[in-house]
């Protein structure tokens, strides 16, 4: 670019508005139970699978799920990844201490729940490890009442 030449290259356009989603009675009931240190799931009366987080419809059977069951609070790590970064609004940022993110099969559940595992050296995480839910005290009536998971014992 020549000295003094001005280029207007970009229009930076933020989208700055908020959606107000209704969580629905299933997530509402799930959150309320978390406050009592319980993890609630729904069972399909056709295929028998137990889903957590609870949702209203079984895709396979195309029916309403209406039988509530308690699962966990212990479970087993089925798949895990060790995070060396985090995403901040879509940008990759390095983190100092690696994180553990796992898909945990809670006792009594058929589906896996995405979880953060704390209190464990990332080098020691493995498939099959038993973990338990740690709840927020006092509860704040949000999804974050299920704060994280940690190794059993």
């Amino acid at each position: 670019m020549k000295a003094g030449e001005r280029i207007v290259a970009h229009a930076v356009v933020p989208l700055d508005f908020t959606y107000n989603y209704r969580v629905g009675q299933y997530i509402e009931r799930y959150i309320k139970a978390l406050g009592e240190k319980k993890i609630m799931a729904v069972k399909c009366q056709d295929c028998g699978r137990v889903f957590v987080p609870p949702r209203k419809i079984c895709g396979t059977c195309n029916r309403i799920l209406d039988e509530w069951v308690e699962v966990g609070p212990e479970g087993t790590i089925e798949i895990f990844t060790i995070g060396h970064v985090k995403l901040n609004k879509g940008l990759v940022e390095k983190i100092d201490k690696p994180s553990i993110i796992a898909m945990v099969k809670l006792d009594g559940a058929s589906s896996l729940l995405p979880c953060v595992i704390n209190g464990l050296d990332p080098e020691k995480v493995k498939k099959g490890l038993r973990v338990k839910a740690v709840f927020k005290e006092p509860p704040e009536d949000s999804l974050f009442d299920l704060d994280h998971f940690e190794p059993v014992g």
Binding site: Y21, V23, I27, P53, T81, P114, V116, L143
Partner: peptide, 22 residues
Amino acid sequence: PAYDRQLGILNEPVTAALQAKA
């Protein structure tokens, strides 16, 4: 929006890493 986006545990590379491990 009312579950995973609130929690912030999953994102695209995390899900891909879990799929890769599986």
